[in-house]
Amino acid sequence: MSAQSGELLLVTINHETVPMEERERYALDEPQIRALYKSLHARNGIEESLILNTCNRFELYAKTVGVPNSESAVIDALGTFYKTDADSLRDHAQIHGGQDAIRHLIEVSAGLKSQITGEAEIFGQVKSAYAMCQNLGYAGALINRMTQKGFQAAKLIRHSTPIGEGQINISNVAVDLSLKIFGGLENAAALIIGTGEIGGKTAKAMRSRGAKQFGLASHTRERAEAAASEWGGEPLLVDELAEYIGKYDIVIASTETESPLLTRDALKAAHAQRKNRPLFLIDLGLPRNLDPRCEDLEDVYLYNLDDLARIAEDNLSERRAAIKSSEAIAAQKSESIWQVLVSRGLVSFL
């Protein structure tokens, strides 16, 4: 790959530019990505390229050399591939050049542009896209330098700002709180009351963070056994709750009930046998499954759906508040990366 001076261009179609129905048209699987790379590089003028394709975005970073209008060249190439006209492609896309393209890459990698602000998965997706581009031989000096330095900047943002801090879905908030009570979940026994989706998700999240001992309680033996075979754990009956609740450290209740399954007095009797071990009650049911007065007991921590949702919302607000400082870092880093690219003659200064 030559290191001839050229122009850097970014075409992005994402959740901010078009709705999902339109985005679907641009989604590619791996063979299609390979085909697009091939198609782009079969044309004169596109020297390097990087394609990022996730469920929320299609992005093409391209270095063009020796073409009078690089934007038209890239749009034409994409239009040909997608069998669509250039105007509708322009309507769906945002197009950035030069330093703005680098800043965009940093912001995407750091999760600033994600639908769920600060989510970490996107960084892995960008890294995979870069690895594929390298393996196929479409990354040259510009893409390599821009991407590697861009990754460093994204890491800096994630480490120096709270952009990725705090859980933002209810199941993970519950798991984080469990960790704040018990440290690790390896020795904490969890009881799931109800076999609904949210209880299952929370159990799954807890298992992924080390929880090993589970009890699965349902109103009927059949449903408890079915859930136990699916999620793993001991099948139990809700009617016998008072007999076994003392054995568990975390109780996740999300079943349909007219009256609370666990009253304060019943819990007080069971809690006395626990020798002051803390008990974490998570009430995900509506109407509430657990008597709200349970939280009056010492060493008992009771959280309901509203509490968890509020914490998730607070965490999200905190992430959003970090966007400004993260963008400032992205702007500063993209400028220094751009200066290096210009000084090395990899791009022409526009």
Binding site: K180, F182, R310
Partner: peptide
């Protein structure tokens, strides 16, 4: 402090940085 934050459901301040109550 940790126990109080957990009881009152206030997750700000030093709470995120301190160890679990069991530890």
């Amino acid at each position: 402090l940790q126990s109080r934050s957990l009881k009152q459901k206030k997750m700000g301040g030093f709470f995120p940085f301190m160890p679990s109550i069991a530890e």
